[in-house]
Design a protein around this nucleic acid. Sequence first.
DNA 1: TTTTTGACTAGAC
DNA 2: AGTCTAGCCAAAA
Length: 106
Amino acid sequence: MIQINRVMKESYQRIWQTVQAIPAGNVASYGQIADLAGLPGRARLVGTALKNSDEGRFQNRAIPWHRVVNSQGKISFPRQSPIYQQQVARLQEEQVIVLNGKVKLR
DNA sequence: TTTTTGACTAGAC
DNA sequence: AGTCTAGCCAAAA
C-alpha cells in the first residue's frame, strides 16, 4: 500500500477539485490549475495528481482530466499514444477544436 | 537511501 | 517557430 502524507493528500484533493471546476467545453493549463489550487509554481504536481487520480485510489470522483493542457495549449502526450487519442476525442465531444495536438483558441 | 523521470513552465537565445 | 536552461519536486526506479 502506498504511503502518502496528509499534506500531499490535501494538495491532490485541491487539485482534483479545481480540475472538476473547469466547465465543459473549456480548457485550463497545468500551471493555471496549480495557481487556482493555491500551489503556484507547481504545475508538475498537477500532472502527477491527475496521473494518480485513477478510480479506486483515494475514492476520487471522475475528473475531467482531458480539459487540462499545457501552457502552449497543446496536449501533453505523444501523438501516437492511446491516451492522446482519447483526450482529443473527449475534447471534440465538447466541441473543442484540436488541430495538430493544439487546442484552438477563441 | 540516492538517482532518475516526468500529463510543467517561463525566459533566453 | 524550435531548442536550451533552470526551477519545480513527488514518484518511481
